[in-house]
């Protein structure tokens, strides 16, 4: 992707050449970080016990991924290769801590529920992976699209797992709807339930996506 440097100045031939759409589709769907690449599983299992948690975590990842991709891409020509990973982590950590502080200041209850998992986005393989695999080789605009696409891909899968776990675990959805006759199913809100739901969601995702054309070469 890096070899094609023609096109308009702002996006280096990115959006204009239809690359933006391709990048968006790849990140959110055909190369979904969670369901296809199997990255960032730790947080996906840990915070999905309710829909609200999943959504906030999804927003956090979109914010961090877009921000870090943008800056890694802007600095890519100046970053010494030897310390590029350290530089990436520094940028990622900055964004994560900013988000965490905002959460602590304005959404205290939510921040308490998510506990250490927001800070752990620093080590989330998706963010680092996108910086390393995409932002280092691509212009800023396209990198933003890629960060956003992967963030959305992560957030949507998280939300789906969150809905299923909250619905079957407690019989409610974000306090908007509640079935008082439902007896809570503890396994769904605990860790094993996360694995089970995750497995089904990934299977369904792969079924819908269809077989990988490159797999049977």
């Amino acid at each position: 992707m890096a070899d094609e440097k023609k096109g308009c100045m702002t996006c280096g031939g990115g959006m204009c050449g239809g690359k933006g759409i391709i990048t968006l589709k790849e990140g959110a769907w055909s190369n979904n970080p969670l369901a296809i690449q199997m990255l960032g599983i730790c947080s996906a299992l840990a915070v999905t016990s309710s829909l609200a948690n999943s959504l906030v975590m999804g927003v956090a990842l979109i914010f961090v991924c877009v921000g870090s991709n943008l800056f890694v891409s802007l600095l890519r020509a100046h970053t010494p290769p030897r310390i590029r990973m350290i530089a990436e982590v520094a940028i990622i950590a900055t964004f994560v801590i900013i988000f965490d502080q905002i959460l602590k200041a304005y959404f205290w209850e939510m921040s308490k529920q998510l506990g250490p998992y927001v800070a752990l986005i620093i080590t989330n393989c998706i963010v680092m992976g996108r910086a390393e695999a995409f932002a280092l080789q691509n212009p800023p605009m396209l990198s933003i699209v890629d960060g956003f696409a992967n963030g959305i891909g992560y957030a949507v899968v998280l939300a789906v797992i969150g809905i299923i776990r909250e619905l079957f675990g407690t019989g409610s959805i974000m306090g908007l709807w509640e079935a008082d006759w439902y007896v809570g199913n503890l396994i769904m809100v605990s860790a094993p339930g996360a694995f089970i739901v995750m497995g089904f969601v990934v299977a369904l995702f792969n079924k819908l996506k269809g077989p990988d054309p490159e797999e049977n070469k």
């Binding site: 030897r82 310390i83 520094a90 940028i91 900055t94 801590i97 200041a105 304005y106």
Partner: peptide, 28 residues
């Protein structure tokens, strides 16, 4: 160059974090 780059990046990140921490301190 590597040391300069690391130092500048470090300072910029630190400044950003300090600004965030200062502005949210009271509420937290």
């Amino acid at each position: 160059y590597t040391i300069m780059y690391a130092a500048i990046l470090g300072v910029v990140c630190a400044l950003l974090l300090t600004a965030t921490a200062e502005s949210t301190k009271e509420r937290i």
